[in-house]
Design a protein around this nucleic acid. Structure first.
Length: 541
RNA sequence: GGCCACGUGGCGGAGUGGUUACGUAGCGGACUGCAAAUCCGCGUACCCCGGUUCAAUUCCGGGCGUGGCCUCCA
């Protein structure tokens, strides 16, 4: 089956035909860097990561160019920088804010298993290209200068509004925005505007003498043009960007370059709600990726995200996260049993499943891909498929911690020593935060969490499988909790086995309950060869 | 007001003009001293009202509900 994609431009699913199969080009609108990225920002990042992986699979990794920009010039950035760094010169404060926020963004999405794009251009490094675009548009009559602004003349473009399916008449009729007096047409939009004092500014195009700065849309036209050419294959982003952002990008790029399209395929991911409500700062239900990563491993977020088709709305809930985590737990328990002591399986081998690729090729049907992965899981459990093959497919979908089941347990292991303080809810949250920090590779958060728990009288230890052990030894020679713990657990299991042999079930059940109170679950299995009963343990679900 | 999505079993979530996807929870069974884990089995869902059709959850029309854009928010 060939790759089919839904195209907002045509409102149809159609077979994807790359302009050049040796260089498939995709542009996705990235974040404006002024604050922590939220879960809504994570959606396009994950969705188009799946597409990127699929394209690389089909055309070869070296034949795909993925560009995702960083918007680092914006009113919100200016305002935030002035607020946070009032003592710094504006350009220094802005640079610091955008650098820090970009670094944070990278850290957050790395935990989500997202591959880095081939190019990640910053708007401020493409001012020259933006100025050139403005010049070209003024020169060919698609833009005009008024009051030190460069404005796009919407009336000069016959099919303006095609992407968002709007006519100029409708938009003007329904427009709620006040029209600036210098605009020729009410829908004309800004390509370049004069900088106010204290705002970043650059030499202006088109004979404007005062310094200025770019409008919102022009940056993407400039960056896409520079890195992907005047016409490229796929342009993606959130559905809210369809109008005006993408519509205006198209207008600028096409009119500047004289091309019939900017990108052949336009893809838009659906919106996201939180616990049934729209996410907004005023409602106080703003969920940042960073915050989520203190509760769970990035794989869990990814699982929940791709379980819904990218064009469907998602209601993001705590409940959903928990069930995603549970499924990942069962996969990871299987994997860790099979791969044994290989802590960092640089697992060789494992092939991509044709059916999984096939459903993914149907407009990126990631939920169906997950269903296929579940079938593969069943086959692997039944011994009809190697665990490496299953793992390879899971990794293709971006899950990267399946060899560490400890990361997916709903709880961390309970208190294995009986004296001293018992953890309360807040402590347990800290334990989880520590585990997540380790899982997501956040070294500084891990250290902070460790310190905090230490102050509260607990000691944490995490093993290769991601299982966190908690003790409250007060001794300064707190050596190796894991060894202590294993010794403790094994001796209790031995006592229980003896009791069972003696048919003292009251005693054996008592020991099992005791272990359960520590968060340890026992499993009795019959050894197939010897017929002996063997007891294994794991952290409780 | 204009334009546009979405509404599936307890929950999550694909898909289809006629044959109970899938996951999870729940229930029943096997196994077990009892559990847990595992394995096997079970649920006959598609917002409402009309229409088209031999047949609609799936197509068409209307309604209701939720959400998005038209306000530089993915």
């Amino acid at each position: 089956m060939a790759l089919k994609l839904y195209n907002t431009l045509t409102r149809q699913k159609a077979e994807f035909q790359p302009i050049d199969p040796k260089n498939v080009r995709m542009y996705v609108c990235g974040p404006t860097v002024y604050d922590f990225a939220h879960i809504g920002n994570a959606r396009p990042v994950i969705v188009f990561d799946v597409l990127y992986r699929l394209l690389r699979h089909i055309y070869g990794p070296e034949h795909v160019t993925y560009v995702r920009n960083i918007t680092d010039v914006d009113d919100k950035i200016n305002a935030r920088a002035a607020e946070r760094y009032p003592e710094l010169a504006p350009e220094i404060g802005i640079r610091k804010l955008t650098d820090d926020t970009t670094a944070q963004f990278h850290k957050d999405i790395a935990a989500l298993g997202v591959l880095p794009p081939n190019v990640e251009p910053r708007a401020t490094e493409h001012i020259v290209e933006m100025v050139q675009l403005c010049e070209a548009l003024v020169a060919n009559g698609h833009a005009y200068v008024a009051a030190d602004h460069v404005l796009f003349d919407v009336a000069a473009m016959p099919d303006y509004g095609r992407l968002s399916n709007r006519s100029l008449d409708e938009m003007e009729a329904g427009a709620r925005v006040e029209v600036a007096p210098y605009k020729k047409g009410p829908m004309d939009f800004v390509l370049w505007k004069p900088s106010k004092p204290g705002e970043p500014g650059w030499p202006s195009p088109a004979g404007i003498t005062v310094p200025g700065r770019p409008g919102w849309h022009i940056e993407c036209s400039a960056m896409a043009g520079k890195h992907l050419g005047n016409v490229f294959d796929i342009h993606g982003g959130g559905i809210d960007l369809t109008f005006p952002h993408h519509e205006n990008e198209i207008a600028q790029s096409r009119c500047a370059h004289g091309t019939p399209v900017m990108a052949n395929v336009w893809m838009h991911n659906g919106f996201l709600q939180v616990e049934g409500e729209k996410m907004s700062k005023s409602l106080g239900n703003f969920v940042t990726i960073n915050e989520l990563l203190t509760q769970c491993v990035g794989d869990v977020i990814r699982h929940l995200m791709i379980q819904t088709h990218y064009r469907q709305p998602i209601d993001w809930t705590q409940n959903g996260l928990a069930s995603s985590q549970l499924e990942l737990l069962s996969w990871s328990e299987f994997i860790s049993e099979r791969c044994g002591e290989v802590a960092e399986p640089a697992i060789a081998g494992g092939a991509c499943d044709a059916d999984l690729i096939s459903v993914l090729q149907d407009d990126l049907n990631s939920p169906a891909a997950l269903t296929r992965l579940r079938e593969l899981f069943g086959l692997a459990k039944a011994g009809k498929l190697s665990w490496q093959d299953f793992l390879a497919n899971a990794r293709f979908l971006g899950f990267k911690n399946l060899h560490r089941p400890g990361f997916f347990h709903p709880h961390i292991m309970g208190n294995v020593f009986e004296s001293g303080p018992q953890p309360n809810l807040q402590d347990q949250r800290l334990f989880l935060q520590y585990r997540s920090a380790i899982a997501n590779g956040d070294v500084s958060l891990a250290e902070t969490s460790l310190q905090a728990t230490r102050l509260r009288g607990f000691r944490l230890k995490i093993n290769e499988e991601g299982v966190v052990f908690v003790g409250n030894l007060t001794s300064a020679e707190f050596s190796d909790l894991q060894i202590e713990t294993n010794r403790e657990i094994n001796s209790r299991i031995a006592r229980r086995s003896a009791a069972r042999k003696a048919k003292d079930f009251k005693e054996s059940d008592r020991i099992r309950d005791e272990l359960a109170a520590m968060g340890i679950a026992l499993k009795d299995t019959k050894n197939k060869d010897t017929g002996e009963i063997e007891t294994t343990w794991e952290v409780m679900r």
